[in-house]
């Protein structure tokens, strides 16, 4: 871990301003991913702005009948909020499926959106990786890719966004709110928040340097039945091979998103529209244009089977 300087921010705008004026500065919230990567010098901030004291840890109701989740709300608090459990169960379920009790206590809503990939070649600094070291190549592309992406990926990077929470936020049409160094704020639909890798896999989100996530807004409750099924190699404390978030209405319509398969929570309007035709039709739409490898092509079949299980449960 390289040396850095440390300070605690006192307001969101101040935090944004400090980070903006220093090229190597980063926000520090829970730290569960950032410190992990700093120990390996995959992240090498020269200055950390600790945002823990900011007043961003509330879940409030919005005028539109939805919820605003402060960026510093912990995963635990989010998943246990009575309103979230009642009206946005898919979100509660997705968060519970992630990480461990200890990590969920520390991980924040904002930080979780910025969680970086778990590609093992990204984590091994001896290996070429276009995300970690642009232009060095992608060791994963022809390597061990059982956990890696099958859709929305590129020649330069086949990593996935590894989280669970954002997959649920995607089906909920959540909006990410930020504050910029100049004090202005913007609202970014979750579906636009994470970038596809293209030829710049080092750029992962639309955030500008110094732009701080202040919260996530959920529109009014979508009703219906909520499902989050995460398939992993062990029963807990593991990243998804495939996860499926779904909100299903009594008439069979609904919304669906897939995790563990792409650079972002993977949601397609065409796939939603195919829900009444069954899992096979949905997956055909969602995974159109996929690029699989021998050791990860199972993900498409697994996505279909996982969704089929959800649809069967919804019918029963």
């Amino acid at each position: 871990m390289r040396s850095f300087t440390y300070e605690r921010a006192t307001s969101p705008q101040q935090a944004a301003a400090i980070v903006a004026e220093r090229k190597g500065a980063k926000f520090l919230a829970g730290g569960t991913n950032l410190l992990d990567l700093m120990k390996l010098e995959i992240e090498t901030p020269t200055h950390l702005v600790d945002v823990q004291d900011l007043d961003l840890d509330m879940i409030e109701e919005t005028a539109e009948g939805g919820l605003r989740i402060g960026a510093l709300v912990s995963n635990t608090a989010l998943s246990a909020d009575p309103r979230v459990m009642r009206d946005y169960a898919v979100l509660s379920r997705a968060v519970q499926a992630g990480a461990s009790g200890q990590l969920r206590n520390k991980a924040t809503t904002g930080g979780n959106l910025l969680q970086r990939t778990r590609c093992p070649y990204f984590y091994d600094t001896n290996m070429p990786c276009n995300k970690r070291s642009p232009g060095s190549g992608c060791a994963a592309s022809a390597g061990y890719s059982r956990q890696l992406g099958v859709v929305g990926i590129s020649e330069d990077c086949i990593a996935t966004y590894p989280g669970d929470m954002a997959v649920a936020l995607a089906v909920l049409d959540a909006v990410v709110e930020t504050i910029r160094p100049d004090g202005t704020s913007r609202s970014i639909p979750l579906g636009d928040f994470h970038l596809l890798w293209g030829d710049t896999p080092d750029k992962e989100t639309v955030l500008e340097h110094g732009e701080l996530i202040t919260g996530v807004v959920l529109p009014k409750p979508p009703g219906g039945q909520h499902y989050y099924h995460k398939v992993r190699d062990r029963a807990s404390y593991a990243f998804a091979l495939v996860s499926v978030a779904a909100v299903l209405q009594p008439d069979g319509t609904g919304r669906v998103a897939f995790g563990g398969v792409a650079p972002r929570p993977w949601r397609k309007d065409e796939a939603d529209a195919a829900l009444t035709q069954g899992a096979k039709a949905v997956v055909e739409q969602a995974f159109a244009g996929s690029a699989t490898r021998d050791d990860n092509k199972y993900k498409i079949a697994l996505a279909e089977r996982t969704l089929a299980g959800i649809l069967a449960e919804a019918r029963s």
Binding site: A142, G143, Y144
Partner: peptide, 20 residues
């Protein structure tokens, strides 16, 4: 190709947890 065990951490090499 490179001749090593790729999943060289405790998240990548999955030993059973309580829930298993």
């Amino acid at each position: 190709r490179f001749g090593f065990f790729v999943n060289h951490d405790m998240a990548g090499y999955e030993v059973p947890v309580h829930a298993d």
